[in-house]
Amino acid sequence: KLPPGWEKRMSRSSGRVYYFNHITNASQWERPSGNSSSG
């Protein structure tokens, strides 16, 4: 399961899957890690 705020999306241009955070408006190709504590 993804960390809070993150969701899986697909890029229309490349067709690749990326991850988008609707809370911080951040996007990245790598899967966000939800196990590590923020610090």
Score class of each variant (00 low, 15 high):
P3Y: 02
Y19D: 00
F20V: 05
G15W: 03
E7T: 08
R9Q: 04
S38H: 10
G5N: 07
R31V: 10
P4Q: 07
L2Y: 03
Y18G: 00
P32R: 00
M10H: 13
G15N: 08
S36F: 10
E30A: 08
T24Q: 03
G15A: 05
S37T: 11
E7R: 05
R31T: 07
G39C: 14
S11W: 08
S11T: 10
Y19K: 00
R12P: 15
P32T: 01
L2R: 01
M10L: 15
S14I: 05
M10R: 15
Y18L: 02
E7N: 04
P4V: 08
K1P: 14
A26K: 14
I23Y: 10
E30C: 07
W29Q: 04
S27C: 15
S37F: 10
T24P: 01
S13G: 13
S33R: 10
R12T: 15
S38R: 04
G5D: 05
I23M: 08
W29D: 05
N21A: 01
N35M: 10
S36M: 11
V17P: 09
Q28I: 05
P4H: 09
V17Q: 05
R12F: 12
P4L: 08
Y18D: 00
R12A: 15
Y18I: 02
H22L: 12
N25Q: 14
S37W: 10
G5I: 02
Y18P: 00
R31I: 10
H22F: 13
Q28T: 06
P3N: 02
G5W: 05
V17S: 06
S38C: 15
R16G: 03
N25M: 14
S14E: 10
S27V: 15
W6N: 00
F20D: 00
N25A: 08
R12L: 15
E7H: 09
L2W: 02
R16Q: 07
G5Y: 06
E7A: 05
Q28H: 03
F20W: 08
G34K: 09
W29T: 06
R9L: 05
N25E: 07
Y18T: 01
N25F: 11
I23H: 09
S37Q: 13
K8S: 07
K8D: 02
G5H: 07
E7W: 03
V17L: 07
I23Q: 08
R12Y: 14
K1W: 13
S36N: 10
G5S: 03
Y19F: 07
R16P: 01
R12G: 13
R31H: 13
N25D: 03
K1Q: 14
R16S: 04
Y18N: 00
S14M: 06
Y19W: 06
R9N: 02
V17Y: 12
G5M: 04
P32W: 02
N35G: 12
S13I: 13
E7P: 01
S36E: 13
G15L: 05
W29S: 05
P3R: 02
G5F: 06
N25R: 14
F20K: 03
F20Q: 01
H22Y: 14
S33I: 12
S27M: 15
N21S: 04
H22C: 12
L2A: 02
L2G: 02
W6I: 01
P4I: 08
S14L: 08
W29K: 05
R31M: 10
R9P: 00
N35D: 12
H22K: 11
M10S: 08
S11Y: 10
G34I: 13
K1V: 12
R31P: 12
I23V: 10
H22N: 11
T24N: 05
S11L: 12
F20Y: 14
P3F: 01
S13P: 14
P3Q: 03
G15D: 04
N21E: 02
M10T: 15
S27Q: 08
G39R: 05
R16I: 06
N21K: 02
L2F: 03
S38K: 07
W29M: 06
P32Y: 01
S14K: 07
A26P: 00
K8P: 07
K1H: 14
P4T: 07
S13C: 15
N21L: 03
Q28D: 03
N21W: 00
